[in-house]
Amino acid sequence: MTAETALSVPTSPTATTPILEVRRISKYFGTVIALKDVSMTLLPGEVMCLLGDNGAGKSTLIKILSGVHQPDEGEYLVQGRPVRFNSPREALDHGIATVYQDLAMIPLMSITRNFFLGSEPTIGRGPFRRFDIRRANAIVRAELAKIGIDIRDPEQPVGTLSGGERQSVAIARAVYFGAQVLILDEPTSALGVKQAATVLRFIAQARARGIAVILITHNPHHAYPIGDRFTILKRGRTLGTFTKDELPREEMIRMMSGGEELEQLEDELQHYRA
């Protein structure tokens, strides 16, 4: 599916307004220029892959989008309106949910407690208002069944889940709480082939529900099949956004795996051999 067909699926006129947009955003950490003049749009129901070398500024960009950092320059618009988030909670309230690779889940807490952390359903009034564990368990069971994970006991610790299942639970949580935009920072980097497939399949499901996804990954084999468009960052600047047609698989693999560097390395090694 190319960006064009992804665009043509939703028919309402609002579908063409970007759900997220940054215009010439810059971010400095002391003397480090982490981002410089980066612009990007995200459309409803598309998967945008954020590509680039280590230190290119990918995490910094998504931390701005998710309210962890504030941009030093530039504009940030959500559904066409300028915003300034002071905390991840504010971004969350605008339907922008982020799943971090390492921060996704707390292993010793139960699935249910993790799922509802910060948004626990309650029952009762006043001093008798309490965490409605029974309802929470039922919701978790139902939400996970939707994505094909059958848990016997929602109160089992998250640590007993596999890495892929943990990611899936984290994403399911974001979707359940009404995320319009899902931001995933390297969700598949620590996963085996099968588990990564579970997560990618789930991302496709989320997209089918009209959720927009920003996906950071170093693995071209994960990015290419699922991505609709690709934004490439290099040393804090954007090299542009490309659709699948504009960026053939080989070209992307070459860019992502540092093709030039590898060729250069090959030449050097050749030199030693001679």
Partner: peptide, 21 residues
């Protein structure tokens, strides 16, 4: 209670807890 769940959360991973509000 909700604060009870938060106590587990901030002890387990304060950053993760902060990120979910």
């Amino acid at each position: 209670t909700r604060p009870g769940n938060w106590i587990f959360g901030i002890g387990g991973d304060a950053n993760a807890a902060r990120n979910v509000g």
